[in-house]
């Protein structure tokens, strides 16, 4: 099978690798984005204190940016050359998909860091406002 398919089409294995790589990375991105932003809405509600519309729209804006960056990066690093056997295919695919997963993990933690930071800033602002109000009542 090996020789026949490569004689018919020299790019057989490369096309097969792309056929695996693109769906895997797209599915991975969609899965991570759905998980992250379903749970991120809770943080956004906490940050924007009951302004539901603003929380939802900010969450969506971040989601769009997340999709753009990750799908863009996944497609950008697609290029694979010199795949002549099924062993090369598995090696090249695992390297690409593994590298992309690591990148996705780093971006995920960066997003979580932003959520935690936003929550902290909003808590500090709230405390400051309460203190100012208390001072005004006293004075």
């Amino acid at each position: 099978m090996n020789t026949i398919s490569t004689i018919e089409n020299p790019d057989f294995f490369i096309l097969l690798a792309y056929g695996f790589y693109i769906p895997i990375t797209l599915l991975l991105t969609f899965y991570v984005a759905r998980k992250l932003f379903k749970n991120g809405l809770v943080y956004m509600r906490d940050i924007f204190q009951g302004r539901e519309e603003l929380a939802v729209s900010t969450n969506r804006l971040f989601e769009t940016g997340f999709y753009l960056l990750n799908i863009g990066f996944a497609l950008w690093i697609l290029e694979m050359n010199y795949i002549n056997s099924s062993r090369d295919l598995v090696e090249a695919l695992s390297q690409k998909v593994g590298g992309f997963s690591i990148y996705l993990g780093v971006v995920l933690f960066f997003n979580l860091f932003l959520f935690f930071r936003g929550k902290k800033v909003s808590r500090l602002n709230r405390e400051m406002r309460e203190r100012n109000q208390a001072l005004k009542v006293q004075g």
Partner: peptide, 19 residues
């Protein structure tokens, strides 16, 4: 496919950075 993915991917990266 390589050239398409490379260029479309870079376009998406730029869109995300601008956003």
């Amino acid at each position: 496919i390589q050239e398409l993915a490379h260029n479309i991917g870079f376009l998406c990266l730029i869109l995300g950075a601008i956003h």
